[in-house]
């Protein structure tokens, strides 16, 4: 067992074949300690989404390996990967994050369907997270009744409610203005730190970098650490 939360080695993704082949990520290697929150920066089309998709067991790499909490996810079946995502990885997406017909709290407790944690544990964690994220009085509101910032905070809560090892965040502030974006990322960073989680946040926005421990840059599919 290793203390590393994430070990990425020689991770490569080539889309397509022959002369239309696009190398989106090339030989990426990267380690994350158990409580590290890093920013992943890079121009559009540089391979950020492709990289975290592979790390998040959503996309099969062409080559290389990903170990999360010491477990190699590359060799898993689709079913095993789905289970792994449910229990070990928390996601915050850019948009379409929440289930529109579930309340804020239900968007967290819905994870009881897939998590190995009990319904009660998930429920207790959900209440605590909503409290910490300043959503206690919004818990019974539907996403459409929440502001953009509140919605992203609910998404952060959902990512953490299953007690995962690794949090993956893709441009969480793309649909928010700067001040709101900062507040959301600050909250995200605080939750990740307090819980001793590892996290990767994809962002375009250099102003968000102040909340991360370090930043990794990606250009044309290659990492510059």
């Amino acid at each position: 067992m290793t203390s590393k939360a994430l070990e990425v080695e020689g991770l490569t993704k080539i889309y397509g074949e022959g002369h239309t082949a696009v190398t989106a990520v090339s030989e990426a290697s990267l380690d994350l300690a158990g409580n590290e929150f890093v920013g992943l920066l890079g121009p559009s089309g540089s391979g950020k989404t492709t990289l975290i998709s592979m790390i998040g067991a959503l996309l099969t790499p062409t080559d290389g390996s990903v170990r999360i909490g010491g477990e190699d996810i590359s060799g898993m079946s689709k079913k095993e990967q789905t289970r792994f995502r449910a229990n070990r990885i928390g996601f915050v997406f850019q948009s379409f994050n929440l289930v529109p017909f579930l309340t804020a709290r239900e968007n967290l407790t819905v994870m009881a369907n897939v998590s190995d944690l009990s319904k009660k544990e998930i429920g207790d964690r959900a209440d605590q997270l909503l409290e910490e994220l300043g959503l206690a009085d919004r818990r019974d509101n539907l996403p459409e009744q929440l502001s953009g910032g509140e919605r992203q905070r609910v998404a952060i809560g959902r990512a953490l409610v299953t007690d995962p090892d690794l949090i993956l965040v893709d441009e969480p502030t793309a649909s928010l203005d700067t001040e709101l974006g900062k507040a959301v990322v600050e909250m995200l960073a605080k939750e990740i730190k307090e819980r001793n989680k590892a996290g990767i946040m994809v962002t375009h926005d250099l102003r968000m970098v102040e909340y991360t421990d370090r930043t990794i840059e990606i250009v044309d599919g290659r990492l510059r650490i």
Partner: peptide, 11 residues
């Protein structure tokens, strides 16, 4: 919505 649910581990 389905893509998100599947990504977060809904079978």
């Amino acid at each position: 919505e389905y893509a998100v649910l599947k990504a977060i581990g809904m079978p």
